[in-house]
Nucleic acid binder design. Structure first.
Lengths: 227, 227
DNA sequence: ACCATTAAATGAATGTCATTCATTTATCTC
DNA sequence: GAGATAAATGAATGACATTCATTTAATGGT
């Protein structure tokens, strides 16, 4: 039998199969590696293979800790939910708190739009940080005197607006240029041009502000002691 | 050499490669087949192979008429945009028209949520029916006396809300059940319960109505001749 | 009428994924 | 210590979308 392949200097010996001395993986490190990967290279780069590579592990090893890639997405979502700023609900009046929360929520998820189709539909149980966010928001609404039966509806409506707006952030500025069919859309063109003529802030931010303020003042009318 | 395989009765002879007598494919038939497939089996079933099979054609043949699957998605989007009801902008007051359009838009796209991440970000040029929708809406806003520079922002905000709400329609009713972590979310639980106690209409419709009415009355304040 | 070009199909790769499975081996438990 | 369990490996699998060389019929120019 020839000499066993020598542990040549400078080469880290490849791990053999079998139970390692200490576990390398768990949901926490997988989540961190995934978020890191996304921050550095975007969601297109998030593959199970790339994630495994980042963790210096075989792709199949991940499946000892998560059931599927969608499962990884849920872990990411819960991590990201923690980045949303709900602190204003404890320190500021209702309208200012909603404003801070909504802008923060939109900004965070504009960097994570691939999560939206998943979380918009996925039950929130087992996502502790996401639940913590909802709890903080709901508590803020209650303290402000919002009618109990309308809190969820109002939050769902705000969230719908926020999710839609998060996609918007990633749209190109010329998304409403009619191009070669412009002859048929005079009213649209005129509206687009007159918005561009204003042209200070990002159009997407102007639209978000406009919608958010309308929602805040509409819902504000439901507060106790305002009518 | 054995006899060449006879054209056995009942077997349609397989098409040979080469230019056919009359072209089978174009973007119109591809779009129709795709929409048909989606309506019958959902978006998961929309693969290039399945689409080709539906058209009795090899998958590679599709690529003579579309550049990619995303291209097919855009064709579907433009087809679907035509289903949105904008007629009220020509016959009814502004607020009623927005209401009809928004509900219709949400209902249509709740059946086509996989399109949303694509269209929310994709320039609208070369999508004639989508452009026609925007033109009708924009014209309605202008006729109602909406300030020119705010029309796009208002429409974008409404659309964001509509897209977010479209996802919502497909969520399970118990999406806000905290499950095993319920001890930590008393306010959320109370709000969920008190909404459920009302329990007439679909919660998702209640939330949509609440948000939409807030947006309509908020934007209505911008109309000329309203004070 | 002929011939070169082009359009529209085929089917056989390719490459990228997520996911599964038999196997290996260190650690934990009784 | 023996047996069970946990956590890794690497080699399939099976969906996919997409590309490419090839085939063949229609078309257009001379």
């Amino acid at each position: 039998m020839p000499a066993p392949s020598p542990a040549s200097a400078g080469t880290t010996p490849r791990r053999r199969a079998g139970r390692p001395t200490a576990a390398v993986l768990d949901q926490t490190v997988i989540t961190k590696a995934a978020v890191d990967l996304i921050n550095r290279k975007g969601y297109e780069a998030l593959t199970m293979a790339a994630l495994a590579k980042q963790l210096q592990v075989a792709p199949s090893a991940l499946y000892n800790h998560v059931a599927s890639k969608d499962d990884v997405m849920l872990l990411i979502e819960d991590h990201v939910a923690d980045l949303v700023d709900v602190s204003a609900f404890e320190t500021e009046p209702w309208d200012a708190a909603v404003r801070r929360w909504a802008w923060s929520y939109r900004d965070v998820f504009s960097q994570h739009t691939p999560l939206i189709p998943i979380i918009a539909v996925m039950p929130v149980a087992n996502a502790p940080k996401t639940l913590a966010m909802y709890e903080a928001v709901t508590a803020g609404f209650r303290r402000a005197g919002f009618p109990q039966e309308q809190i969820i509806s109002a939050v769902v409506a705000l969230e719908a607006f926020i999710f839609g707006a998060a996609f918007d952030v990633n749209a190109p500025e010329d998304i409403y240029d009619a191009g070669s069919l412009a002859e048929r859309t005079p009213n649209l063109n005129a509206a687009v041009d007159s918005l561009a003529a204003q042209g200070h802030k990002r159009p997407t931010d102007v639209a978000f502000s406009l919608g958010l303020e309308a929602l805040i003042s509409g819902f504000g009318a439901l507060l106790a002691g305002k009518g």
